[in-house]
């Protein structure tokens, strides 16, 4: 039997989740395209009436993005330049219509290799807050995403927030997406880059690539190589062969594997170049 739950408190939502397999629904921008039916079937838990799950809070430890925060919410939020890449990604999620409905937790739970939101969140060292009726736990986003369309979500659990630590709110950032058309397009490759260089020398860098591996990846080796360099020198540090070695792209209808690896390297150079030029904002 189909049952559609739309509780107004997290407590009620978690109680419903306890012991019942429910489809958690928010923006429905992935759920509806997956069905030809006119209704969401089965047992659905719609979390969009839970006010506490929507919005962005800044605290001493960092930022907390509620699970049901939409891409449009993120675009309108006042956030430091480290989040520019997340806003740039938000602007590239589908269309305005999709940005008004789609949520940040939906994007990571859908676990598409090409999810626009994931590379910037990885580059922000985001953690995922998971709640169930028995408690709450946190996983690094990179541990939450376990494969193509696979996550570490356990039965009875739901994502309640994405957290970005205070330290990761530093630096300038840039997101670049490559697709075969301008709007409404699934990435061939995407990159998110955050660079902390307060005194003309890179003190820290976070680089992530999407759509070039089963789960978007951080490029930690390259990040380390960037440290200590001047911002202007960053693009030259991107080595095609090293990037290709770190990624595991597939060939599909959008592009072939070799192209994806080369494009990722080129996008990284451009994103780093934009940051050096101060054009990242």
């Amino acid at each position: 039997m189909d049952v559609y739950h739309r509780p107004e408190t997290l407590q009620d939502a978690l109680a419903l989740l306890n012991g019942t397999a429910l489809t958690v629904a928010a923006g429905c921008t992935d759920l509806f395209p997956a069905t030809p039916a006119q209704e969401l079937a089965g047992q659905v838990l719609d979390i969009t009436a839970i006010a506490a799950l929507r919005g962005i809070d800044e605290g001493a430890d960092g930022w907390r993005l509620g699970a049901a925060t939409t891409w449009s919410d993120i675009l309108r939020a006042s956030l430091p330049p480290a989040f520019d890449m997340l806003k740039q990604a938000a602007r590239e999620v589908g269309s305005v219509q999709i940005q008004n409905a789609g949520t940040i937790a939906g994007n990571i739970c859908n676990a598409s290799p090409a999810a626009d939101g994931v590379p910037p969140l990885l580059a922000l060292d985001a953690a995922v807050e998971l709640a169930s009726s028995t408690g709450t736990r946190r996983l690094a986003l990179c541990d939450f995403l376990t494969g193509v369309r696979q996550t570490a979500l356990r039965p009875g659990e739901m994502v309640t927030a994405i957290e970005v630590p205070r330290a990761s709110g530093a630096g300038c950032s840039r997101f670049l997406k490559l697709g075969a058309r301008k709007y409404l397009v699934i990435s061939i490759a995407s990159v998110a880059v955050r660079v902390v260089a307060p005194a003309g020398r890179v003190e820290g860098a976070a680089l992530a690539v999407g759509a070039c591996s089963p789960v978007p990846l951080r490029l930690t080796a390259l990040e380390q190589r960037l440290c200590g360099r001047a911002p202007d020198d960053l693009p030259d540090a991107v080595d095609d062969a090293a990037i290709a070695g770190a990624l595991s792209p597939i060939s599909d209808i959008r592009a072939d594997a070799a192209y994806r690896a080369a494009a990722a390297a080129e996008l990284l150079r451009r994103a780093l170049g934009d940051i050096a030029d101060g054009a990242a904002g």
């Binding site: 559609y4 739309r6 429905c28 921008t29 509806f32 719609d46 969009t48 219509q97 999709i98 008004n100």
Partner: peptide, 12 residues
């Protein structure tokens, strides 16, 4: 605000 009606559960 514009949304796709085909992606919007009426309950929302």
């Amino acid at each position: 605000e514009p949304v796709c009606a085909c992606l919007t559960p009426v309950a929302q």
